[in-house]
Amino acid sequence: MSAIPAEILAGAERKPHRTSGWWGMIATIATEAALFAYLLFSYGYIAAQAPPPWPPVGAPELKLALPNTLVLLASSVTVWWAERRLSRRGDLRGCRRGFLATLAFGAVFIAVQLLEWHKKSFTPASHVYGSLYFTITGFHMAHVVAGWVMLAAVAWWLASGRAGPARPVPVAVSAVYWHFVDAVWLAVFTTFYLLPRLG
């Protein structure tokens, strides 16, 4: 066969959505999404067969959870903006700012969620609703923390030149994971906070 043009061989890392790292993250997200599907299935399976009232303590309040949901959504917007600054304009500073804003929003979400847990009148051992509530929101929290550490690492790499306009893969990979964490929250939030209000 004829030689493969040198520019094709050299351009491997420039388009992050073609790299193995990106594909690996998408596959990881797929299996994590399955995990949350099983968690929410368990909630639905137990809720459907539990004697009324469900939830036994009444639908959870929205006072903290709704604003916190908006905070998490805002963090998705900032990381999307950060990625765009880098890929469209090569703007390293803008990208770093976007990452720092996302980290700040993420930290607020974690803090408010801890406060919400603290204010609950029940524990995981109180009743099966408590087991489900803390396990599922706990799983989500673990993913938020993992995503936050990932974003912090990439922010550090952006500062030290390990990631940047010519090496955009870490930015794209961590951003898509963060979007996933947000999307999962919407499913958890809808299940726990909104659905009980419909009945």
Binding site: Y38, F41, I46, Q49, A125, S131, L132
Partner: peptide
């Protein structure tokens, strides 16, 4: 280990949930 009730029928948990999963 922590006294949750996923499969505990007395607390409205479901033993069959184990079999499904």
């Amino acid at each position: 280990q922590f006294g949750t009730h996923f499969f505990d029928v007395e607390q409205n948990g479901r033993p069959l949930l184990w079999q499904h999963l």
